[in-house]
Simulated scan of single mutants.
Amino acid sequence: MGDSSEHSVTPLYSQAIVQAAQRQGLVLPAELLAQLRPGQRVPLATQDALWDAFCAASSDPLAGLQLGLEMQIGHLDSVGMLLVTCDTFGEALEELVEYAPVVGDGGEFVLHSEGDQAFIDYQPHLRIRSAERVEAVLASMLSLTRWATGGRFQPSGIWFAHAPLAAPGEYHSLLGCPVHFNAGCNHLGFATDQLALPQIQANSALRDHLRQLADHNLAALGQHSLTADVQRLVRQHPRWGKERVAAELDLSGRHLNRRLGEEGLSFKNLRESVLQQMACRALHSDQRVAEIAEALGFSDEGAFVRAFRRWQGVTPARYKAGDGSAP
């Protein structure tokens, strides 16, 4: 399988892209397809190139969204079967948060609730075709959840951090639920009572077997990834700087930056991305701006306001009062 520390994706997910291209009569570069070897995980850099070639060959700006809606359980490796054999939708989401790296290292999931609403966040760390890939992830989550619950799942909406790639009405037509853009986060929302929805393929004996397989696969991958560990520590300790986070990971600050740099990332950008997501979420609550600024480790409210305006294009007050889009 190569270096277990290399960020990679299950070949089954890459196969979904190739199959979609074949159905649509799209031609992908032969030299790129030659890099996809049966049974071997696909390096994230190759997956980046595959996504770029697929989107470039397609005339549909919503190619990623369409791919997500066509995704099958089998394309998610053993984790796909694990998710659908869970007793409830809520249990499946907990397993998704834990075992998503088996599917791929393109991002991670976080489950949280606000009042009577729950959200499953997708937090990507992608450099190529990020918007299309985020749309594929959330569309597949919506489609497969509807299937797994026998059509009983009713989302309250989908939120995207990016601007629409096509007319917003096209999204609603394809997804069948409210869709929001420029939201500062990427998540699927639903009423908290839907966490108890039973799944039609629930099978506790098979679920336990698949969980053991997922544990084995996760261990073989050397997960969690450094990026995921950094994001987790920043969420838990938003005041921590590079040196404190590095020390927690038994690294020097310089080594941490070098390791992240190999993935095209930097600690500063990674930390700001997490803080942005946390800020947007907090602004949907009853917390005051000054309280949020302090919790996130800013020196004062003014510093937070300046940073937030740089991230979102609006002040925290305008974001809290409106839809989060730039003026």
Rank of each mutant, 00 (worst) to 15 (best):
H7A: 14
Q15W: 12
V18Q: 04
A21S: 02
R23A: 07
V27F: 05
P29D: 05
Q35G: 00
L36G: 01
R37S: 07
Q40W: 08
Q40M: 13
V42S: 01
L44K: 07
A45Q: 12
G64D: 03
L67P: 00
G68P: 02
E70I: 02
M71V: 12
Q72S: 10
H75G: 06
C86P: 11
A92Q: 02
E94F: 10
E95H: 14
L96I: 03
Y99N: 02
V103H: 08
D105Q: 15
F109Q: 02
E114L: 15
G115W: 10
I120Y: 05
Q123D: 07
P124Y: 02
R127I: 11
A131E: 13
E132V: 13
E132P: 12
E132N: 15
E135M: 08
A136E: 10
M141T: 15
S143N: 12
A148I: 11
A148D: 06
G150S: 04
G150P: 05
G151V: 09
G151C: 08
F153V: 10
G157M: 02
W159Q: 14
A161W: 07
H162E: 12
A166W: 04
E170T: 01
H172Q: 10
H187I: 00
L188W: 01
A191R: 13
L197M: 01
P198G: 08
P198Q: 07
D208G: 04
H209T: 13
L210T: 04
L210K: 02
L210Q: 04
R211A: 11
Q223F: 13
H224T: 11
S225K: 13
V230S: 06
G241M: 03
K242I: 11
R244F: 10
V245G: 03
A246M: 05
L249I: 04
G253F: 10
N257D: 11
R258Q: 14
F267R: 01
L270A: 01
E272V: 07
M278D: 10
R281S: 14
H284M: 15
D286L: 15
D286F: 12
I292T: 01
L296Q: 03
A321T: 00
